[in-house]
Design a binder for these strands. Structure first.
Lengths: 103, 103
DNA sequence: TTATTATATTACAATTTCATAATATGATAC
DNA sequence: GTATCATATTATGAAATTGTAATATAATAA
């Protein structure tokens, strides 16, 4: 269980992969659109997509020559919100520490 | 923002670090107790603690010779629940696929 | 002061992750 | 058929992560 949790988290824990998840927030998209939005190499993007698919976060289907990907778990987006809350709080803590040091 | 999210997730995404977070679920603990519970090397445990502290997930204070750590954000435990839900769902999907293959 | 306990830090080799580049596959258009 | 577009896969070297072992620090006890 612990190992599996780590695997899923690792699959998300990369800037490009978080960007992909963010891009798919609005709904499913084909690879070519994803590539255009995030502006990275086709090969690299494809590898990141495959990592997210392997961990079960994304799924996809073929549509002619294209492949359409989507986020399987909307909860992922809530996780991102939680992360942003932590980020904000961390930032506040740091600035308070700085204030105290300056006094 | 994206980078920072990835940093936090990376800091959590390791079996030992998830175990540490789990151990601290019940409340703060000193390093010696954590080491005893998870049964890993002192040095290694200390390194993982420091990674979690650096990302802001954990904080600590000195108490005499000991150092007591705790989880700063209870939301982390909710995140783990979300992960377990995904794990379960992934497992179900896989078993359904297997069933279909066998028919 | 010296020994001991609790914890952190450093050095290092093994492994993993990453981006790039090149190539392969597979569907459609001509 | 061949060319082209969309995507995946493979190879590779550089960079980051990991665990172990050794060492350092800092607090308390003797």
């Amino acid at each position: 269980m612990i190992e599996e949790r780590a695997e899923i988290l690792k699959s998300i824990a990369h800037p490009t992969r978080i960007t992909i998840i963010e891009t798919l927030r609005a709904g499913e998209k084909c690879v070519c659109d994803i590539i255009e939005e995030i502006g990275l190499e086709q090969s690299n993007t494809s590898q990141h997509l495959s990592i997210l698919k392997k961990s079960g976060i994304l799924d996809c289907r073929k549509e002619g020559a294209r492949v359409v990907y989507w986020v399987c778990y909307p909860e992922i987006h809530d996780m991102m919100k939680v992360l942003d809350g932590i980020l904000l709080n961390n930032a506040e803590k740091k600035s308070k520490l700085l204030q105290r040091v300056r006094k």
